[in-house]
Simulated assay, not measured.
Amino acid sequence: MNLYPLQFKPEMKERVWGGRALERFGLELPDGHIGEGWMIGDHPNGTTKAMNGELAGLGLDEIREKYGQELFGTKGQTNGGRFPLLIKLLDCQDDLSVQVHPNDSYEKLPAGELGKTEMWYILNAKPGARILYGLKPGVTRESLEEAIQGGRIMDSLQEVPVKAGDSFYIPAGTVHALCAGVLAAEIQQNSDTTYRLYDYDRPGLDGKPRELHIEDSLNVIAYEGAGATRMTTELEEPNRWLTLAQSPYFVVEKGRVEQSWALQTSPESFVIHIVCEGAGQLVWTDGSLDLKPGDAFLLPAGLGSYSLEGEVTVLRSYLP
């Protein structure tokens, strides 16, 4: 097979906090409150199918089974061979639950599941938008448990204002929540395990309160901090990468293309590009693809030389 950049049909997920904002990217949404677009996924709860080229119609799991290392690279065969990352777009029309994710070693992880370290890049934020990001200094397991029992959990959490271009690294163990008015790209471990601490006493999509996971949450929180970092991401120069997150599971960088930027994949890892703004083309030896905001592309490790053309801002993700 001649390797080429893959684009997938997103798996759309209805969420009580979702809306319709992903339509602005030209994505086809089913009815309902769509909170998550799984853009590149290989998980039991959602597997995306290729839309272009000779692999069109095949799920990422099927592609992985047929082409394995050639596609993912020498570092890409993890978690039983499953694709190591999950790439999402998030539309938060309402506040997400206050939540935390476990790490890989948590003994109560569901069978076959990973922990969940992730990062957010804010694509758009309404005036006054905010997120919850970590515990206030001095909060302990005991004080947090007392606050939960007394209905005062919000007093223990840090609020952070957000704007387009902000970036947040969220290691497992970090209490967090996106809030209303935020549109974000999320790069994360290939996991769908979330423990909820608080959900505003609201009903779920079925009209019933959503399950909370207080004991698991209290068990996995990193009370002394897990290494969460945040930054604004102004780019001083075009055609140069700015590192947003560097974890044991992924590296995420941001770059602004002006005219043409010659790049190359490595045999060690695939590359994922998410288009943030602007327009252009992704060009490789055998073809090209148009770039527009909201697009996500998986470039095989064996692709080799390619270029980004036009006036476009992109995220680049790969395995460390």
Results as ranks from 00 to 15, higher is better:
Asn2Ile: 13
Leu3Ala: 09
Tyr4Trp: 03
Tyr4Cys: 01
Tyr4Pro: 06
Pro5Ser: 02
Lys9Thr: 14
Arg20Tyr: 11
Ala21Met: 15
Arg24Leu: 11
Glu28Leu: 12
Glu28His: 12
His33Asn: 14
Ile34Ser: 07
Ile34Glu: 01
Gly35Tyr: 06
Met39Gln: 09
Ile40Arg: 00
Thr47Trp: 14
Lys49Ala: 12
Lys49Tyr: 13
Leu55Cys: 09
Gly57Asp: 07
Gly59Gln: 10
Leu60Lys: 00
Ile63Ala: 02
Lys66Leu: 14
Tyr67Gly: 08
Gln69Val: 11
Glu70Arg: 15
Glu70Ile: 13
Gly76Phe: 03
Gly81Ile: 05
Arg82Lys: 15
Lys88His: 05
Leu89Lys: 04
Leu90Ile: 13
Asp94Phe: 12
Asp95Pro: 05
Ser97His: 07
Ser97Tyr: 04
Asn103Thr: 00
Leu109Cys: 09
Ala111Arg: 13
Ala111Glu: 14
Glu113Lys: 01
Thr117Asn: 03
Ala125Cys: 01
Gly128Trp: 09
Arg130Pro: 12
Arg130Ile: 10
Leu132Met: 08
Leu132Asn: 04
Tyr133Val: 02
Gly134Leu: 05
Gly138Ile: 06
Val139Gly: 02
Glu142Ile: 09
Ser143Tyr: 03
Leu144Thr: 04
Ala147Cys: 14
Ala147Lys: 08
Ile148Leu: 13
Ile148Phe: 09
Ile148Asn: 07
Gln149Ser: 13
Arg152Ser: 08
Ile153Trp: 05
Met154Ala: 11
Ser156Thr: 12
Val160Arg: 11
Pro161Ile: 08
Pro161Thr: 11
Gly165Trp: 04
Gly165Tyr: 05
Asp166Arg: 08
Thr174Ile: 11
Val175Ile: 14
Ala177Tyr: 00
Leu178Trp: 07
Cys179His: 13
Cys179Trp: 10
Ala180Asn: 11
Gln188Thr: 01
Gln189Cys: 01
Ser191Gln: 04
Asp192Leu: 07
Arg196Gly: 05
Leu205Pro: 01
Leu205Arg: 03
Arg210His: 05
Leu212Lys: 10
Glu215Ala: 13
Glu215Phe: 10
Gly225Trp: 01
Gly227Glu: 08
Ala228Leu: 09
Glu234Gly: 12
Glu237Gly: 04
Asn239Ser: 08
Trp241Leu: 04
Leu242Pro: 03
Thr243His: 07
Leu244His: 02
Leu244Arg: 01
Ala245Phe: 04
Ser247Ala: 11
Pro248Trp: 06
Tyr249Gln: 02
Phe250Ile: 03
Thr265Glu: 00
Pro267Thr: 02
Glu268Tyr: 15
Glu268Val: 13
Ile274Val: 15
Ile274Met: 15
Asp286Val: 00
Gly287Arg: 03
Leu289His: 10
Asp290Ser: 14
Asp290Leu: 14
Gly294Tyr: 07
Ala296Ile: 00
Leu299Thr: 10
Leu303Ser: 01
Gly304Cys: 02
Leu308Cys: 04
Glu311Cys: 09
Val314Pro: 06
Ser317Phe: 07
Ser317Pro: 09
Tyr318Phe: 15
Leu319Tyr: 01
Pro320Tyr: 08
Pro320Cys: 02
